[in-house]
């Protein structure tokens, strides 16, 4: 009964020696409290550049909370307190001198439920570049929008309806629009919080394909409930349980040869 299920991992997983990648994001002794609740306990993790890192674990294990620490989205929750050290490119993101607005421009986020703005497709993608003053002319903005939509593989479906509302798209298209919206401000990191949980299998497959392409240019951290998805898209995987980072390693290793019994139990479907 203890035999591990076989997960199909991407070819890239074994081809890229992860140790050679320098860490883009480092977390040291990260603790998160929601009021009295200790949600994240002493998490240490290195996330390599230009690769996909998956956070897996049962519901309420703290994986989304940790993800939201990386672009300080937890700041909006008044009872939330973060201690420890999270660095991107060696720079402390909780440093007082750091501007959280600039941080979020560097660390984009895609949410669980597609949340396009109730604006046209074009305006959705142009939103970020506009607020950050990245463009000088309309032509330049057009180009950014086109590039972002192409990178998010939405261009072919959307190019003839750029002025239609983003909320009129299908769920999968909406989520790709949200990815395009994040890409348009040229971030270095993209955080994805269960990006496919509201989507059907075909839309999910498209997003996964997209994630695989995006890792050439971006560092991607994805929280997922689907272990198959983690196995398919990520190079490294971290398993969270009850606020603790139980085990972290190459996706291959986590799914074929987990060290910790909790990890083994989780991926064999004993709990979670």
């Amino acid at each position: 009964m203890n035999s591990l299920p076989t997960f199909e991992t991407t070819a890239a997983t074994s081809a890229v020696p992860t140790a050679a990648l320098r860490p883009k994001i480092t977390g040291r002794n990260v603790n998160v409290y929601y009021g009295e609740k200790h949600a994240i306990k002493d998490v240490n993790v290195d996330i390599p550049e230009r690769s996909v890192m998956a956070f897996i674990g049962p519901s309420g294990c703290g994986k989304s909370t940790f993800l939201r620490c990386i672009n300080r989205m937890n700041d909006t929750i008044s009872v939330c307190r973060v201690t420890g050290d999270i660095r991107i490119d060696e720079k402390d993101i909780y440093d007082r001198s750091l501007d959280v607005v600039q941080l979020r421009a560097r660390v984009g986020m895609v949410f669980q439920k597609p949340n396009p703005f109730p604006k046209s497709i074009y305006e959705n993608v142009a939103y970020g570049p506009r607020i950050h003053g990245l463009v000088k002319s309309k032509a330049e903005l057009d180009e950014i929008v086109e590039t972002a939509l192409k990178k998010a593989s939405l261009w072919n479906e959307a190019k003839d309806r750029l002025n239609e509302s983003g909320t009129g798209l299908s769920g999968g298209q909406q989520q790709r629009l949200c990815i395009a919206r994040a890409i348009a401000v040229s971030p270095e990191v993209i955080l994805m919080d269960e990006p496919c949980s509201a989507l059907d299998p075909i839309a999910t497959a498209k997003i996964e394909e997209l994630i695989d392409e995006l890792k050439q240019n971006f560092t991607i951290v994805i929280v997922t409930h689907s272990m198959q998805q983690a196995a398919r898209v990520s190079q490294r995987t971290a398993f969270f349980h009850l606020g603790i980072l139980v085990e972290e390693g190459t996706t291959d290793q986590i799914f074929t040869n987990p060290v910790d019994t909790r990890t083994r139990d989780y991926i064999t479907g004993r709990f979670g």
Binding site: N71, V101, R104, A105, F111, K113, N115, P118, Y127, I131
Partner: peptide, 18 residues
């Protein structure tokens, strides 16, 4: 107005007033 829209905007680096 859903919180998810505010989160989406904040996640792109928009300030509160933006």
């Amino acid at each position: 107005v859903p919180q998810s829209l505010r989160d989406g905007s904040a996640g792109l680096g928009a300030t509160k007033s933006e």
